Computed example of a mutant assay.
Amino acid sequence: MTFYAINGSPRKRGNTAVLLDKALQGVKDVIPDADTKIIHVYDYSYTGCVSCYACKRKGGKYYGRCAKKDAISSLLPELSQADGLIIGSPVYFHSLTGQLQAFLERLLYPYLAYGKEYYSIAPKHMPVAFVYTMNATEEKAQQMNYQIKLSPMEEYAGVVFSPPAVLYCYDTCQFDDYKRYMAQRFSEEKKLQRRQEHFPIDCENARGMGRAMAQKITGQNPTAEGSPGRI
């Protein structure tokens, strides 16, 4: 079995990457011999969907798959055969990173069929999870309706593959040393305290999400902490 984590952050050792790694560890807790891989989208040069509609052309060579040729062309069909996908992104301007948005356009759109209702022509259905990291507090995120603002890709991933589990990680540290940056709106002391006290909980929640994904695949009852829903 193969499970992928898709890191939508430019940082390979940042908060998002750490949580994705914990989620993959959770998969291994349940399926020790699972093949787990992390994809750093910023390692690849590509564009988002270019609206060529080759993936929608009836009887066409590329019906149901992306015709665009670039660095992720061979990766997309590989992902469509996974046993589970865990997608992570820091929140930039109230949304996913642009690089991840472009990647998911290419991954999801070819499998989204235009019937009277949307339906999926993906070759395989699988459990999906989204992990978000942000410097906003939980209270601020709720005030800014992040649950709604971040949901569009969750919705389409749900149609194409399966309704996703979702994990939010609030009030994260952005810098190693806040004194080196213009960031007066943040308290370094409070940020570091939050990281020390709460980030381990976020990591365990991510690991629980991975365990639940693997349990779903193996037919076990998923633990509540990682079941489809929002943490």
Rank of each mutant, 00 (worst) to 15 (best):
A67D: 13
Y132P: 02
Q81M: 14
G84P: 02
L19P: 01
A136I: 14
K56C: 05
S80H: 15
M144I: 14
Q142K: 15
Q142A: 12
K56R: 12
N135P: 05
T97Q: 01
E155C: 05
E117L: 10
K56T: 07
A113L: 02
R57F: 11
G26P: 06
L104A: 01
G115V: 11
I31D: 12
T36L: 00
S89A: 02
P90H: 09
M144V: 12
A129D: 08
V18K: 07
A136P: 03
S74A: 15
G48K: 09
P32A: 09
T36E: 00
E154V: 00
L107W: 04
A17G: 08
G84I: 00
R13N: 11
P123K: 10
R106K: 01
L19I: 03
L75S: 14
G88D: 01
K116M: 08
G48L: 13
R65T: 15
S151I: 06
I39E: 02
I38W: 01
S89E: 03
N145P: 01
P123I: 05
A129P: 03
Y109N: 15
M126T: 03
Y109C: 04
I31M: 11
I31F: 09
G59H: 12
P90R: 09
G64F: 13
K61Q: 14
Y63L: 15
E154C: 01
S151H: 10
T133C: 06
K61N: 15
M126Q: 14
A34K: 01
G115H: 11
K12A: 01
N15R: 06
N15S: 12
V18Y: 03
L100H: 04
L19K: 03
L150W: 10
A67Y: 11
Y62I: 02
G98Y: 04
C52E: 12
V30N: 07
V128F: 03
Y132K: 06
Y63D: 11
K58S: 11
E154N: 06
T36A: 00
P32V: 03
Y132F: 15
I121L: 00
R13G: 04
A54K: 14
T16L: 00
Y44V: 01
Y53D: 14
D70F: 08
E138K: 12
A71N: 14
S74E: 15
E155K: 01
R65L: 10
M153Y: 12
I72E: 03
A113N: 09
A71L: 06
P123W: 12
D21S: 15
S45E: 15
K56H: 08
F103S: 05
S151A: 13
L75W: 09
L79Q: 04
L75F: 10
Y156E: 14
F93N: 12
Y92D: 01
Q143G: 04
A136L: 11
Q142S: 07
S73C: 13
C52H: 10
Y53H: 14
G64L: 04
L24H: 08
Y111C: 00
N145H: 11
Q99A: 10
G48S: 10
S80C: 13
A136M: 14
K28C: 04
I121E: 07
K116I: 07
Y63Q: 15
L85G: 03
L79T: 03
A67E: 13
G59V: 07
S45D: 15
Y118K: 05
K69S: 03
D21R: 11
N145G: 05
G115S: 09
I87L: 02
S51I: 09
E78F: 06
Y156K: 09
